[in-house]
Write a protein that binds this DNA or RNA. Structure first.
Lengths: 199, 199
DNA sequence: GTCTATAAAGGGATAGAC
DNA sequence: GTCTATCCCTTTATAGAC
């Protein structure tokens, strides 16, 4: 990890937002420079190429996002308490950064090779451990019989999709921005009580 | 609806695939021309601008996708039978066109205004009717007490997300392409039995 | 309808002065 | 470190012959 000065940090922050919304292909170095309060030459001084800047943004995002999911699933807390916590934390994070999932998925579609590199570098999600945990909970009768991979997919789907699909869902459900935020809050509670308790 | 000749249809088909994978900003008219077996001039002869071609692709996709969801929800069948059918049909469609949801969501992030135009033009999803139906089923004791908007979100989430998140999920679950297809098949059954029956 | 050639604009990247 | 000016490649779009 190299040291970053204030300008570098501002660039990275701006670039993150621009890439989140426009993607690698749609982002413009000119816009990133403008929003950072510098000119293009300066931008290239800190990050030689667009690809290089993008890679940095993508990696940081991936590790933050996947990393926090990973951490939340590998705590030592009791199983249902862990899921309770997961719902809260993940939905809070996504309320701050709702563009992240579509950003990651769109870019992975362009360049599927990227994920392999990142997964090998990172301490990826330890699914085997989660699997054992689910099997144990089923054995003990704490939750109904279910395959770990289906439960995991349910968990991600129920928490992440409302953010991913916000543009369409808010339209279908006829909710403005504030109403949709309220809906997401309600949903958090709903998942923790109804879904989690009925496992 | 104007009549389209064979060349026009081929262009549209090719453009659809290219835009699905690369998005508006990432797609190249040259590539679309090449894959269509014509040159750029010819391409512009049929579709004057890239935007115009993209709009056509986006609209068709949106209507096909949202339209089929809409149709599946407004049939006259009994409620649970309808959801059963929905799971089958939507997941079959997505197995054919897995790029569609990320494509739509990515492009809506770029240009959120687009959705307003399309929703007003289309006979959008009739959520009020679905709401009444859910309330009725709850009253009759056929399903547990639940808000229609939460149930609808669950339904979309559980069926759509496994396709949207395939690049990451297949990695986390350590599944190759065939294994992931099998997983999706299992999931269809899983949702129809476990989830649907426990509503 | 179909092509070649080219215009016109956009946008990433660098040279070089300060 | 920071700027202006500019290079040059890419890509959209059109002109014009056949």
């Amino acid at each position: 990890m190299e040291i970053e000065n204030a300008t570098q940090q501002r660039i990275l922050e701006v670039a993150t937002n621009v890439f989140y919304q426009k993607g690698l292909a749609g982002a413009r170095m000119q816009e990133i420079a403008d929003l950072s309060g510098i000119n293009k030459a300066m931008l290239h001084y800190y990050y030689t190429t667009k690809e290089q800047l993008f890679d940095k943004v993508f990696q940081r995002t991936f590790f933050m996002y996947i990393g926090s999911i990973s951490r939340l699933l590998s705590t030592a807390s009791p199983f249902k308490e862990k899921l309770w916590n997961f719902i809260d934390e993940v939905m809070d994070m996504l309320q701050k950064y709702p563009y992240i999932p579509v950003f990651i998925l769109h870019e992975l579609n362009q360049n599927p090779a990227r994920i392999s590199e990142l997964f090998s570098e990172s301490q990826a999600i330890n699914f085997e451990e989660f699997k054992r945990e689910v099997a144990r909970e089923v054995r003990r009768g704490n939750i109904k019989k279910v395959k770990a991979e289906q439960l995991f997919t349910d968990l991600i789907a129920l928490t992440v999709l409302p953010f991913v699909a916000q543009p369409i869902l808010s339209k279908v459900l006829s909710k403005n921005h504030e109403q949709y935020s309220q809906f997401l809050q309600d949903r958090k509670k709903e998942l923790k009580t109804n879904w989690l308790e009925n496992l």
